[in-house]
Design a protein around this nucleic acid. Sequence first.
RNA 1: GUCCCCGUAGCCCAAUUGGAUAGAGCGCUGGCCUCCGAAGCCAGAGGUUGCAGGUUCGAAUCCUGCCGGGGACGCCA
Length: 596
Amino acid sequence: MDDRVNITMKPVIDILEERISLALADVTGLGPLPALVKPATDAKFGDYQANGVMAAAKKLKTNPRALAEKLVAQLKLDDICMPPEIAGPGFINLRLKTDFLTGNLLEINADTAHLGISRTENPKTIVVDFSCPNIAKQMHVGHLRSTIIGDSICRILDFQGHKVIRQNHIGDWGTQFGMLIAYLKQANPEVIEDPDSIHIADLEQFYKNAKARCDANEDFAVLSRQEVVALHAGNKETLNVWRHIVDESRSHYQPVYDILDVNLHQANERGESFYADRLSGIVEELKQKGIAVESDGATCVFPEGFTNKQGEPLPFIIQKSDGAFLYATTDLAAIKYRIDELKADKIIYVTDARQKLHFEMLFATARLAGWVHAGVELVHVAFGTVLGENNRPLKTRSGENVKLKELLDEAIQRARAVVEEKNPELAEAKKERIAEAVGVGAVKYADYSNNRTSDYVFSFDKMLAMDGNTAPYMQYAYARVKSIERKAAKKDVDVESELAGITDLNLSEPAELDLAKHLIRYGEIIESAFADCRPNYLTQYLYELAQKFSAFYNACPVLAADKATRPTRLLLCDLTARTIRHGLSELLGIRVVEQM
RNA sequence: GUCCCCGUAGCCCAAUUGGAUAGAGCGCUGGCCUCCGAAGCCAGAGGUUGCAGGUUCGAAUCCUGCCGGGGACGCCA
């Protein structure tokens, strides 16, 4: 079964690419050349086009159209396409046969779990480093993108059959802990006796109070520094208080992951503290290998190709002059751990674009150290900033970071108001569920649908709009299919049995064909979203799918269709719903609802 | 000052990385509910892809130089 699926259910675009590439190699005698098969830029050119002939002709210094003629004469695609057509300077236009389309849809239909999408032939162990909140502070809007983009990358990799290791590199070991512990000991001395009694209602306030006392009171500042030393030295009492602050913080951010449907748990945490006792060894090793040297009292690596403002070599500082370790040191320890112990073939870092230079230097240093053996890939997946209406990074009116929890609450509340308006007769509990799915979905979808690398302006009104490329639009398309199924039951149409015995389809209406051709491209889109870690390819596809479904829905009655066409249309509905549900809820972590 | 990212329709964004006549949405104009959910659909107007050169069959995409915006650049993460 799996073999069959793997052979037959490769995306069409890949099959075409392979076959045309082979033929191209044959005709030119130049060895393997890419066929450059792409979706057609315009429906009037067909469904796919191969652009590789022109590049090949250039190499061969021959006429591209003549080469195209020779190639087409050799091509055997008649099981998939109508006879290829040559156009323009040497494009080869390909139009899928309806028979092929039918067969493809039936196979997708048969493969309930994977929608006919084959798993990778080359599974890898991939570590994804994402989210990474600072402990003892509430998650704010700055954590949104890393958290959900990282989660989606994991979901896609997982679906493709890779071994995914999620790593939440939480900030749990910094100097701010001295201050927090010192404050807690003063403000809530009972926690020393009974650490379980810690209950920090407002983490942010707790942090601010500690900071204020630290700034105002020199004795307290001294105390704070002593606590850091005590913590890092492993003092039992201090460690105990620290552990409870971390636990308490988790009880604040775990619910945020839960409401976001982000698959992160305590088991995924490998915070800064995890690497604490490895840091001095890392620095030692780099010194011994002659990679790290002392400079102005600090220990630095100077990887080639990086310069500072004065044009001098730029340091990657791994140990401060006071002996303390930094972010860079922890990241180096983490790379080593991930490659040596987690056996990572690939490590993906999902962080904001401003850290680009840091990761370039980090990777360069790890390579110098010889830790990154052949076959290991290091990738920085960077993203832009979430902006407010003023085009500056999103803040509250008073200039503070917008808390993620509050942002999501507002989205849910706004969605709730819309449900109330459109569908007042629904049960309360149902309205609440819908509001959560729509509100949170809207925030996530809006983020995913933007180009990852650019900044975007956050707008509740836009993301909750029912038209346009938004989560509610997609959820609505899904709910309409479900509504057809409910109506079917009332009209004595047994959808299951009509679909169960289905062996042939009757595709004839343009809207049916258009939808069908889009449905079979799902696997191809997942591949491209994966290759570049770009969830917006997926949202773009889903949006087009929902649009094509809506056009089909308007043009082609389903339940009222005659016996010859109804099963085909039911199948199109069902596959649309399954694809939307899979894309939204499995790959993007956005819930669908039966009614809204 | 050096380096990195960006500049696309009135607005907000795409363009699968060098392919054909640059696409969607919002907004605007007009049409579609006796009909499976109108939170919808259909049609239309709207562009010298910041500017100027260059590379080639072919450029929003690559190269050079300007202009404008954002970011990074020794002991934060």
